[in-house]
Amino acid sequence: MRCPELREWMSLALDGRLPAEARCLLEAHIAVCPDCAWEWERWQEIGALFDGAPTLEPPAGLTERIMARIPARPRRGAPASRLAAVALGLAVLGDLAALAIVPSLAAACATVAASQVLPGALAVLLRLGLHLLRVVAALAEVGWALLWASVRSPVLGGMIIYIAVALAVLAAWVRVVLQPAPAAAG
């Protein structure tokens, strides 16, 4: 073992990365080599000096001064979550709109039934069907909420499923409500 290699070992030893056997060899060498012993002593002195160094407190008010330089306008949000927020807004609006037209559609059904264009039994069935569909729609919404809560981040995926289900339910419902008219005409 020559001194330059042992100097590398000394550095490893100070960083706790020298295996025990190598450490024994190193110590044996230091005991007989004054140059390496001198170096080893200096390195330990340096370590002691730096290890004892205190943490300096940053000047008072540094956080405030930093925050004062941070732009006040909001950061650009992550694109995915912004899109999801827009989708959520649209879905809620769509749902509210669907709710809003329920009374008028129901009224239309009632008019059709009252005009006795349809047999009474059919009108009753129609109303039952309407209620059934609303129940299905509610179940779909609960399902969507569960999905959204269980899958952590893909808000967007959850929203797309939700919108698809809601639209499908609405379309089916509207079709059923509108169907009796031609039947009555015939």
Binding site: L56, L62, T63, M67, R75, G77
Partner: peptide
């Protein structure tokens, strides 16, 4: 990331000492 300044101030608070040192 979402633009919450208070959260960023929290990060500043947590790391200003290591960075300053």
């Amino acid at each position: 990331r979402a633009g919450d300044r208070e959260a960023f101030a929290g990060l500043v608070q947590a790391y200003q000492t290591p960075v300053y040192n």
